[in-house]
Simulated scan of single mutants.
Amino acid sequence: MAHDHTHVREFFGARAADWDARFPDDGPAYAAAVADLGVRPGDAVLDAGCGTGRALPPLRDAVGPAGTVLGVDLTPAMLDAAVRAGRRSDGRLLLADVARLPVRPAALDAVFAAGLIAHLPRPDEGLRELARVVRPGGRLALFHPLGRGALAARQARRILADDLRAEPNLRPLLAGSGWRLESYADEDARFLALAVRQG
């Protein structure tokens, strides 16, 4: 487990400083995905694997001053970059493992997770932990500002049949972790899977 985390930390730690500069046009896509998550004023939401905190401003806008926004990431350099970007005012930033969250069961209304699932050492455990902290009927958004094809093209690789984000793989993975896949979009300009916490 430690080995996996070291790799994730090194990968994102090395990229944290210029992460936002590399992807400057993603803001509207994040805001649109948060809108589709259907968060309401007063809700408690988690940005799981928040990175530099790009989703925190739209999440804060959605829940309003009475709501709660948590941003959790495993990489200190990413959270440092979020603080430098002024995002501490949008949510509480926590250094923690998404697979072991310091959050009470059923405490949250929704989880937003951008680019997370590909980086979980054990995706089923991570998704089960996210289910633990969300109330029945609460929602999960698995988001990426590029669809699978566009992302593969950018990384000069093929999409593999065992890609977790492929709908035939993702649906049972979610179902086995306490979620029901509600909608699935894999377009050039975004990937967005929305799921509901099963009671």
Rank of each mutant, 00 (worst) to 15 (best):
G64Q: 10
A114K: 10
G42R: 04
F112D: 03
P76Q: 08
M78I: 01
G137H: 07
R157E: 12
R171Y: 03
D162C: 07
G42V: 09
A48V: 05
R88F: 05
A150S: 06
R139D: 00
L164W: 11
C50L: 10
L140A: 03
G42W: 12
L37Y: 07
D124A: 11
V83N: 04
I159P: 12
A118W: 09
V69K: 14
H144L: 08
V34C: 05
A66R: 13
L130T: 01
L151Q: 14
G137P: 12
L146Q: 12
R128T: 05
R40K: 14
V83E: 13
L160A: 11
V134I: 05
V34I: 05
L70A: 00
V72I: 07
A107D: 09
D80A: 11
V63Q: 11
A66C: 11
A114M: 07
L70W: 15
L46N: 08
S89K: 15
E125T: 08
R104N: 02
G138L: 08
R100Q: 13
L93W: 07
S89C: 06
A114C: 10
R88A: 12
P121N: 08
R139T: 00
L116C: 02
L170W: 05
G71N: 06
A141L: 08
L95Q: 10
D61G: 09
G115A: 01
D80E: 15
R132T: 00
A110P: 10
R88Q: 13
P123W: 13
L142W: 00
A35Q: 15
G126P: 11
L170C: 01
L101N: 03
V134N: 04
Q155F: 14
L94V: 15
G51V: 04
G91M: 11
E129C: 02
L173E: 05
V45L: 13
R100I: 01
L79R: 03
G38A: 05
V34S: 03
H119V: 04
L37D: 01
V45E: 14
A107C: 02
D124T: 07
L120R: 09
A96D: 07
H144V: 00
R88V: 06
P41M: 14
D36H: 14
P105S: 03
D162A: 10
A82W: 10
E125A: 09
A96V: 06
A141Q: 06
H144E: 08
R60I: 00
G115M: 05
D43T: 04
D47Q: 06
A77E: 15
A33M: 07
D124I: 09
P57F: 07
T75N: 08
